[in-house]
Structure formats: structure tokens, C-alpha cells
Design a protein around this nucleic acid. Structure first.
Lengths: 219, 219
DNA sequence: ACCTTACGATTACGGTCATCATCTAAAAAG
DNA sequence: CTTTTTAGATGATGACCGTAATCGTAAGGT
């Protein structure tokens, strides 16, 4: 390992790195990881491949993160907040329309982290599930809040209604993705559910009586 | 299938047929794998650990399966058909009641393969997704068929209603499982969705009646 | 201008993984 | 009986994994 006496400064250049650059590189690693995890699952992407995709070699990874598990949690939080912020301009009906769609189903890497990784997250340590709970809360809050700004007859959507529609939408996407590409069942699930969810939103759905615990708790 | 077809004549074939025990061992490996995959995901359990859990060493694995991917497909089919057959005695309301429950959420290994592995299946090769589509169809058929035996009161539930309720239930379980153990959100999701799904079954479309028999059966 | 800090590259370590070669004993086939 | 076949055990192989030690180098504070 000592053979690096190095002669002649020929070395390929790779001058970069300022403090701000490093921070930017770190952020890039996180968002890259978030996308790769959505596409292939937490176990489907290794540190080396991840860093390569971000434009680095795998060695520098541990200057940014203490472990892969740490990055998994951070990438999850990043992806979840991304979904929530993208949703902030949508009301529930618009959200459902774009969420329960073929485009979303077929664009896993660019889609919702909940739909892409909740199955994996369920088996991960608690810190990741805590991020998911927070992400669900943020998304719920975003969907409830929409309409508040509008002066007209919009009223804040009931929390239960939002949670229900979200679970319904997630289930539709996951079932559809579990079917073979182009299968009629995959499309049928999407169409049936989208119509049903939208109907339940416009329908006289004012039923959110006390069902179990109603204690919102952002983590 | 211990069928001893046995040919008295001199047909050339019949080179197969091993001990009946081998066939039984193979089946045991498949059901063990189905449970372990549900608990930890396809990538979360290795061949050696799997075989050990089934009571064997890892070497004999390839006398039964050509690859781990082969077993993954077979174990998926096994788990999915198990869920469908366990559901055959339930109508939709009973199904939802037992499916969208804390017991099911917390008993991943003994629960529904769709809820446990659809997130993983979406990233697997087509043969596994074909099994999932078939499993969804079987489960849908089982839920539609229930009630046919009864005289007038029940009529065949609409396919769309069943698919919709199934996706909704799956989404509820997956979201709840993605939350930390014992979190209030995890329980809230379950309670909100269960009530909503049951409500949509009783007053939604033009074909459905209330529950007649009561036999809540945890899978 | 020093000196400290640390990004990122290189290389290597244990460990685990799927897969397979080989051996064995026993069951089937003759 | 003998021969053939094979379920399962044992052990090796090579690839890949997460993690870490080392180092060149440049940035940032003083």
C-alpha cells in the first residue's frame, strides 16, 4: 500500500470542494439516494453504486454519513417532505387525480415515497418509521390546509377524510404496481379506485365521528 | 400429491417420483419461505437461513429449486392462495373487519401476502407480479362469491366494489405498518379506514347487504 | 502565511450472499 | 441381488456488501 511514491504530478485533476460545495454534494447524495431507494428499495442499492450514481466513489461516503442506515433515514425524510411540499398547491381531489394515475404508477423513482417504500419501511428500525409517520402527518396537513387560503366556500377538510383518501390512494398504487406491466388488472385497479375515492370526496361525506383516537401528533 | 401413478407396463417414463417425504419436505420449505418472506421481505432472508429454519442445511436447496428467484415465485403463489382460501368463508364486511385490524397489522408473518410483499413484488421480475395478479383475482373472486350460497338476501358483490375495498384495506395496513410501533397515528389510520370501508359497503353501491353470520377469524 | 480540518479517492477488511461440486446413504429400478 | 438415481449434508467459490484506515489535497480560520 506504500507504493504510492507518486512521481510527476500528472494526476488527473479533480479540484473541487469548498465548504459550500461539500454541503451541496451531500444534498445531492441524499436526493440521489432517495430516488434510487424509491426505485429499487433500501436493500436494492448499495453504498458504492449509490455514490457512483451521485458522481463519487464509495469511500467518501462516511465523511457525510455515519452509516447507510443513517442515510436511509435522511433520504426517507427528504423524499417524504418533497412529496408533501409538491402537494401544497393541490386540494384533495387534484391530489387523488394525479396520485392514482398510470403516470405515477409507472414513475416510481419520481413518485411518492410512501407508495414506493412503505412496504420496506415497515421492516426498518423505528427512526425510519418515525420519519414516515411525520411524512404522513405533513402530507395530511398539506391536504387539509388547501382551501384555507381561498375566501369562498372552501372549508378545511376533515382529517379523517384526508387520511382515508390517502390510504386508499396508496393501496391502489401499490396493488397496481404489484401486477405485471400492461396487465388489464393493473389499470382496472387504478380506474376503479380513483373513481371511488373521488366519489367519496364529493359525496356527502361528513362522517368523521369519533373513531378511536383523535389525537394528532406530529413527530 | 403423493399420487403413485405407477405404470405397470413398460412405458419408458417414470424416471421421476422420489420419496413421498421429499415432496413433503419441499412443501415445507415453500411454506416456511412464504412466512419468512412476509416477515422480512424477499431480500431479508437468505437461502441458508431459510433452509435452516425449515430444518435443513443450505446445500440441498438446489435439488428442489433452480434458484432463489424460483422459490420466491412459488412461495408468493403459496402465500397468496393461502390468503384467498382463508377468505372463502368470509363476506366482504367480515374480511375488512379482520383485515384492517391491529392483530393483522402486528402479525405480518401470519397475515396477508399482498399487504406484506406487494411493495417488494413491484420491483421483482414479471413472473412474481403475475402471481400477485392471480392472487388478487382469486381473492376478489372469493369475496365476490361469498353469499352466493345464501338464498335471497345476498347477491353477488360487484367486482369493482371488492377491488376497491381490497385496495383500501391494503393501503390502510401498509400505512399503519410504516408508523412506529404503538404510535397513535398507526391506530388512527386503522380505525378511520376500517369505519370508512365498512360504511362504503353498506350504503355505497346498489348491491350489498349487512353482515349475516359472525365468524371473525384471524388468519 | 501557518495550521487545522475534512472532502473525496484509494484500497482493504470481514462478512454474507447465491450458487455449485462433491460426497453419502438410501430409495427406486432392473 | 445389482445398478441407477437422488435428497440432503458438507464445503468451497466468487461476487458483493457495509465499513474503515490511509492519504493527497485544498479550504478556512487565525
Amino acid at each position: 500500500m506504500v507504493g504510492r511514491s507518486d512521481v510527476g504530478g500528472k494526476g488527473w485533476l479533480d479540484m473541487r470542494v469548498t465548504k459550500a460545495q461539500a454541503e451541496q454534494n451531500r444534498a445531492h447524495i441524499v436526493t440521489t439516494a432517495a430516488r434510487l431507494f424509491r426505485e429499487r428499495g433500501y436493500d436494492g442499492v448499495g453504498v458504492a453504486e449509490l455514490m457512483a450514481e451521485a458522481g463519487f466513489t464509495h469511500g467518501g461516503f462516511y465523511k457525510h454519513f455515519r452509516s447507510k442506515a443513517d442515510l436511509m433515514a435522511e433520504a426517507s425524510a427528504n423524499g417524504l417532505s418533497r412529496t408533501a411540499s409538491l402537494t401544497e398547491t393541490l386540494d384533495i381531489a387534484e391530489f387523488v387525480e394525479s396520485y392514482v394515475s398510470r403516470e405515477h404508477r409507472d414513475g416510481r423513482g419520481e413518485g411518492c415515497t410512501i407508495a414506493a417504500l412503505s412496504g420496506d419501511a415497515a421492516r426498518q428500525p423505528e427512526d425510519i418509521r418515525t420519519e414516515f409517520a411525520a411524512g404522513i402527518e405533513s402530507l395530511t396537513a398539506a391536504l387539509q390546509a388547501e382551501g384555507d387560503a381561498s375566501p369562498d366556500t372552501h372549508q378545511r377538510t376533515a382529517r379523517a377524510t384526508v387520511i382515508d383518501a390517502l390510504a386508499h390512494s396508496v393501496g391502489a398504487i401499490m396493488l397496481s404496481r404489484a401486477c405485471p406491466d400492461g396487465s388489464s388488472l393493473a389499470d382496472e385497479i387504478l380506474d376503479v379506485c380513483r373513481e371511488s375515492i373521488l366519489a367519496s370526496l364529493t359525496h356527502g361525506d361528513g362522517s368523521q365521528s369519533a373513531a378511536g383516537s383523535t389525537s394528532p401528533q406530529p413527530a
